[in-house]
Computed example of a mutant assay.
Amino acid sequence: MDKVLDSIVIGGGQAGLASGYHLQKKGLQFLILEAGKQATGSWPLYYESLKLFSPTRFSSLPGMKFPGIPDQYPSREEVIHYLESYRKKFELPVRTNQKVVLVEKENGFFRIQTGSGDIYQTKTIINATGSFHSPFTPDIKGQENFRGQILHSSEYRNPEGFANQRILIVGRRNSAVQLAIELSEYSRTSLVVRQPVQLVKQRVWGQDLHFWIRVIGLDTFPFWRFGKEVPIPGGAADLGDYKERIAARKPDQLPMFTSFYSDGVIWSDGKREVVDTVIFATGYQVNLPYLKPIGALDSEGIPLQVAGISTSVPGIYYVGLEGQRSFSSATLRGVGPDAQFVVKRILRYLKN
């Protein structure tokens, strides 16, 4: 592609679509490059029973309300349908099957190469990819000798095939708790944690927690302006009877095991237990190798940025990083304000 665009958005999920909305609103020439077959991010790959922990009324992208009952929590399928409808409504220019493999800078412009061999040129880049394809799994002693099944939560889809197993789920946040509660209906399942699960009460004084987060300003408080990291909660949202289920030990909670052996795990007291499956709900890590050649990442591969603006490569921006500008930055409700902030900075950059 010979034409030099104002901006290219890498990633066609919620962060990419929100970025496209604001770029379009400002009349900029842009494209959204999506590695997959559709512009729905990683949502089709999440486990089937997934529900947002924010209600419908607080789960919208800019310009289009999330349909449905305001106080219900959208399902995975509802989010996928919403993202598809969003792209169609605003006729956002998305090109699918365009996995970015390399970014270079020459003659003041960025040159983007995709796995299909296509080349794009642009004045600015918004990286809006998630980290779903880079799951973090800790390296635990004896893991290579374990003859059972080890999964990351990103590989889990539904309880089929797990009936009557002994299952350990490592983690204490939303995904870990949701999976453990679901699987405990079919198998003997335990949450394995370093600290007990902290369930955040979802409704306070008749309002969803997210209402109060907005009222007190935590959802948008600019911690980054004061050189502080945005606090990310370590607990899980109580989306129903979670508190009662955990109190009833279905699932129960156990302190982290020390190592694996061929048939299971070894606990801190030296006891061995036969285990069929271990699922790590231990989160994800940023993986943007295509930005390394231009110096956009630190030695550990983390973007050098403040509030979504690259501090090492002028013209590089980010939307969708956890804690980027606020408590809600990596969520459906948070990517819109962050995209708007970034696009304003792009306009300033293009005028200079």
Rank of each mutant, 00 (worst) to 15 (best):
K3Q: 13
L5F: 14
G20T: 10
Y21H: 12
H22K: 06
H22T: 04
K26H: 12
K26S: 14
I32T: 05
E34L: 10
A39D: 05
W43H: 08
S60H: 04
P62M: 08
I69A: 13
Y82G: 09
K89N: 07
R95M: 05
L102F: 04
V103R: 02
E104Y: 00
R111C: 11
S116H: 01
S116W: 00
G117Q: 05
I126C: 09
A128W: 04
A128C: 09
P135A: 08
P135F: 07
T137W: 02
K141H: 14
Q143C: 02
R147L: 13
G148T: 09
G148E: 07
Q149Y: 01
Q149H: 12
I150H: 06
Y156P: 07
R157W: 07
N158M: 06
Q178G: 10
S187C: 13
R188V: 14
S190T: 09
L191C: 05
R194F: 02
Q195L: 06
R203E: 15
F211W: 15
I213K: 12
R214L: 12
V215Y: 07
T220Q: 15
R225A: 08
K228P: 01
L239M: 06
A247P: 00
L254P: 01
D263R: 14
D263T: 10
D276M: 02
T277K: 04
G283A: 06
D298E: 02
E300P: 00
E300W: 01
G301C: 12
A307Y: 00
T311G: 01
I316T: 08
Y317G: 06
Y318F: 15
G323I: 03
S326Y: 07
S329N: 06
L332T: 08
V335G: 07
G336H: 10
P337L: 03
A339V: 14
Y349I: 01
